[in-house]
Design a protein around this nucleic acid. Structure first.
Length: 425
RNA sequence: GGAGGGGUGGUUGAGUGGUUGAAAACAGCGGUCUUGAAAACCGCCGCGCCGCCAGGUGCCGAGGGUUCGAAUCCCUCCCCCUCCGCCA
């Protein structure tokens, strides 16, 4: 959520930001009108309440002195009704204002590229070199078939499309990667590990900005009004909702399954495990002082990149343009792994600075130099998503004989195993 | 799921209709004293909203209600604790 004062006082700056996102800015006029209405009603209601408080005090005093207060009490009853009326009008305006404010996305950082969609994104750096193959590289589905590590038909039987089954050495590889990434984040990069709930309430989803906009993309438990997490960002960030953090910065990391309905994406990129409704991910979340958040974003990206570098994978970093960043983000880098079989780039990480946008929604604060509460800045980044990491490893490390050479840093997590071997015919 | 108890400021903890936004203590901040520190003493010390300021207003788990007036009475909900039941 944006600061209403910012919308009020720097309307054109905010408007420009929304225009850069390709948004209609009519919502700002509605918000400003509601804001004026709201403040007028507050002034009116406060004035009436001041009178009520004063007279009530006098009545108390008079009663103690044994005086008759019937007449004045009767007249005050009318004032009470007027106040109730005023408060109802105010509640109505505030609800309208809040609804409108929750629907306004973050203002993009001024330095990011301006553009309507992904075509305007900027490639920041390409790391590693594409491997040259002496044979035609297979895609992850074909490799997985040879290795016997997926079972898509039976997964559909159990649930439906988009809920893959990993088997045998495939399961073990994924578990090893999770373990490796968590170890790197916690042992070397200074993060504290958390195992959070995978199901959260509505307030948490509003806090990080998934609701109200993304309701259709998430799984909801009607009986309890709970939501399956689409990312660990939600429970981990909301850990400090309505809280004052004692000491900044705080770095947290969590492995969780992620659940995404991806409404409207049926039939798109559905081959294999590229785009699924349930996947695993290791996430990093930072709570920092506002002055440092853009430096923290750079180190967050570096933390994610370190994984891929250590795995010796070919990847690139993209700076998203104003039209492509997510609802809550002010600036975002995507990290994409190269898929040699499809000659395409696969997004495995999204690292964002939300500035105080989430902190205002979720009311996450710390004490500034003057001891007064201030909103923190929040950031998060994947470190990293498992399915596409698996795809990239399978494809980039595949051998002509059908085996897959395991990156060296992962081998200790696989009991020294050097390669995944094709299943016996 | 059933029965009982309880949710008050950073913490502990008073407060059952009227100068209570809230006693007291502890913690914290500033000062006096001291070579320095401790102790002692003095003062300050919650958050939000409206307002240029003065000030006003709201907040005692959340939301409603009663009343001239609610931390205090009533209703609904949430959470925590104890016991019972069920259970990985």
């Amino acid at each position: 959520m944006l600061d209403i004062k910012r919308i009020r006082e720097n309307t054109e700056e905010v408007r420009n930001g929304l225009v850069r996102r390709g948004m209609d800015t009519a919502c700002l006029e509605k918000i400003l009108a509601a804001d004026i209405e709201r403040r007028a009603l507050i002034a009116k209601a406060d004035e009436l309440k001041q009178k009520r408080n004063a007279v009530s005090k006098e009545i108390g005093q008079a009663k103690r002195e044994g005086k008759d207060t019937f007449a004045i009490q009767t007249s005050m009853r009318v004032l009470g009704e007027t106040i109730t009326l005023c408060d109802n009008l105010l509640a109505n305006v505030e609800e309208r204002l809040r609804t409108a404010m929750l629907a306004v996305p973050n203002v993009p950082c001024p330095t990011i590229p301006t553009g309507p969609d992904a075509s305007a994104n900027r490639v920041v750096r390409v790391v590693g070199t594409p491997r040259t193959f002496s044979f035609k590289p297979l895609d992850h589905v074909a490799i997985g078939e040879k290795l016997g590590i997926f079972d898509f038909p039976r997964a559909v039987k159990l649930t439906g499309p988009g809920f893959p089954i990993l088997l045998g050495q495939g399961s073990r590889l994924q578990r090893a990667l999770i373990q490796y990434m968590l170890d790197l984040h916690t042992q070397k990069q200074g993060y504290t590990e958390m195992i959070p709930p995978y199901v959260v309430n509505t307030a948490s989803m509003v806090g990080t900005g998934q609701l109200p906009k993304m309701a259709e993309d998430m799984y909801h438990c009607n009986a309890d009004d709970y939501w399956l997490v689409p990312t660990a960002e939600v429970p981990v960030t909301n850990y400090y909702r309505n809280d004052i953090i004692e000491k900044l910065p705080v770095y947290l990391t969590a492995y969780t399954p992620c659940f995404r309905r991806e409404a409207g994406s049926a039939g798109k990129d559905t081959r294999g495990i590229l785009r699924v409704h349930q996947f695993d991910k290791v996430e990093m979340v930072k709570f920092v002082e506002p002055e440092t958040s853009y430096d923290e974003l750079e180190s967050l990206v570096a933390n994610a990149e370190e994984i891929l570098q250590n795995l010796n994978l070919h990847y690139r970093v993209i700076e998203l343009c104003s039209g492509d960043i997510s609802f809550s983000a002010a600036k975002c880098y995507d990290i994409e792994l190269y898929s040699p079989a499809t000659d395409s780039w696969l997004e495995v990480s999204s690292c964002s600075n939300f500035e105080d946008f989430q902190a205002r929604r979720a009311n996450i604060r710390y004490r500034g130099p003057d001891g007064k509460p201030r909103l923190v800045h929040t950031l998060n980044g994947s470190g990293v998503a498992l399915p596409r990491l698996m795809i990239a490893i399978l494809e980039q490390c595949q051998q002509e004989d059908g085996s897959v050479l395991i990156p060296e840093v992962i081998r200790p997590y696989l009991g020294g195993t050097e390669r995944l071997l094709p299943k016996a015919k």
